[in-house]
Amino acid sequence: MNPLLKAEQAVLGAVLIDPDQLAHLDWLAAVHFYRPVHQALFAALRKLRSDGHPATGAEGPVPLSWVTDAVDEAGLHVRGLTAVYAHALISACPRPAHAPVYGRMVLEGAIHRTVAQHAARLHQVARADALQGKVEGALHSADVLIGVLTDLARRWGTEPRPVAPTTAPAAGPAVPPPVRANQVAEDERFLLAVLTEQPKAMAEVVDWLRSGDFTDPAHGQLYRCLGALQHRGEPIDRITLLWEAQRRGLLADGTLSGEQLTSLGDDVIPGSAEWLGERVMRSSLTRTAAASARAVQALAEDEALGPGRLINYALHALGPLDEVRARWQTAKGGPAPKAPVTPAAGGPPPARVQAARARSTPHPAPSPPARTGPAPAPASARSPSRGHP
């Protein structure tokens, strides 16, 4: 038994029985239904209502023309819909007055599907950008996903804000396609070689490049060693880099080997540290975008998550991408990064939010018992504490 399918049938049956229920479903759209035949029928019912069908607002029994006209209108856009199925939908509705609750179930399923679809799109585009050495597609897809999350939050009646989940989503980190892996590792080695032989080049990348941007953890550790030497004002060359790595225990635990350090001199080529650093940042950005997308997908596939938590957890999962993106914009000298997601003005009316949530009005909290003793003195009138002027 599929609860979402039952909910779609119930909400349509409720509207076929009582056309006035559409007035309580203004926040629900045809695209929120999963089955195309249900989308077409709900859109047809909406159209009949906007055209002023005699069944809407009329007293007494609902005329049969309400059902037949809806079937005829929906039949213009989808095949296979008959009056028999419309009457089956009527039978599938337990209580027409519960239409807002059924609609909330439909919207909840649509939110999960929509988030999963856009996250999958971001993952695909990020991997394609990684193959081509680009970032524009991934950044655009991330913007679209954030916009979708914000819109869905407003429809559900909640505030979109990043919230860390109680348990991490079960999604491993995404990696760039194997076709580019060798090229990325080569860029990282060349960058480290340039920074080792040209210590002043550290100033070109230190403000926006981080050790986590390197695909190879060993390369990231070498970059941290270079940054530590530069921060302390120590001279930088292959010997001092080896010394710093030894002090950090990287040679003892096998993270690095002496051959890796001494071979940096063999990779020295004339080049710009800034240019190489940007190439490393491109790989980091697409890799982070793919990992964030997989985390959002894992959240969307968790049916136990309510829409509000799903949206806020998804925004939190996109946080690492926002951080890398801000540093990428700094590297490119572009405009300041966008402000965090905030709820847009002019959200849905309170009545629509209440219908979407289908929640009962909470009982007012009991007022605290009145004090029988004298009222406490205001804070401004209290004597200063001992030891303070």
Rank of each mutant, 00 (worst) to 15 (best):
M1L: 15
L4R: 15
V11N: 09
F33P: 00
R35M: 06
H53V: 13
E59C: 03
W66M: 01
V71R: 02
A74K: 03
A74L: 08
L81F: 07
V84I: 15
A88Q: 13
R95A: 12
G103Q: 05
H112K: 15
H118G: 01
R121P: 00
Q124L: 14
R127G: 12
D129F: 11
D129A: 11
H140V: 10
L149N: 01
T150V: 03
R155E: 10
W156R: 01
A181S: 14
V184S: 08
L191H: 05
A193W: 06
E197G: 06
P199N: 02
E204K: 01
V205H: 00
F214W: 13
F214V: 13
A218E: 05
A218G: 15
C225L: 03
L229Q: 04
I236C: 03
W243A: 11
R248I: 04
A252L: 10
G254Q: 01
P270L: 12
A273F: 05
T286I: 10
T288C: 07
A289Y: 06
A291V: 08
A295E: 14
V296R: 03
A298T: 07
A298G: 07
L299K: 05
A300H: 09
P307K: 00
G308H: 05
G308C: 05
Y313P: 01
A317R: 04
P320Q: 00
V324R: 06
G333T: 07
G333I: 09
A339Y: 00
P349R: 10
V353A: 04
R359E: 10
T361N: 09
T361K: 12
P364W: 06
P368V: 08
R371F: 02
G373D: 04
P374T: 04
R386Q: 08
G387E: 05
